[in-house]
Simulated assay, not measured.
Amino acid sequence: MRRSLGPYELVRVLGRGGMAEVYLARSHGASGFSREVAIKALAPELVGHADLERALIREATLAGKLRHRNLVAVLGLGVDDGLYYVVLEYLDGGDLSDVVLPEPLALHVISELALGLQYLHDARGERGLPLGLVHRDVGPGNVLVSRTGDVKLADFGITKATALADLTAAGAVRGTYAYMSPEQLGGEPLSAASDQFGLAVMLVELVTGARPFAGDTPAAVMDAMRSGAILDSVVARLAPDVAEVARTALAPDPKARFSSMDELRTTLDEIRRTRLPVGASELGAWVRSRRAC
Rank of each mutant, 00 (worst) to 15 (best):
P182Q: 12
Q184D: 10
L185K: 08
G187C: 08
E188I: 00
E188Y: 03
P189M: 01
A192Q: 14
S194E: 07
D195K: 07
D195C: 09
Q196M: 05
Q196C: 02
F197R: 11
F197T: 06
F197Y: 15
G198N: 10
G198A: 14
V201K: 05
M202G: 09
V204H: 07
V204G: 05
E205K: 10
E205A: 15
V207T: 09
V207D: 12
G209F: 08
G209R: 02
A210D: 10
R211M: 06
P212I: 14
F213E: 08
F213R: 00
A214E: 12
G215T: 09
D216L: 14
T217P: 04
T217E: 15
T217S: 15
P218D: 12
P218N: 11
A219W: 15
A219Y: 12
A220F: 09
V221T: 15
V221F: 12
M222T: 13
M222K: 05
M225D: 11
R226H: 03
R226P: 04
S227F: 07
G228D: 05
A229I: 06
I230A: 04
I230Q: 03
L231C: 05
D232N: 00
D232W: 00
S233Y: 04
V234Y: 00
V235E: 01
V235Y: 02
V235R: 03
V235I: 04
A236G: 01
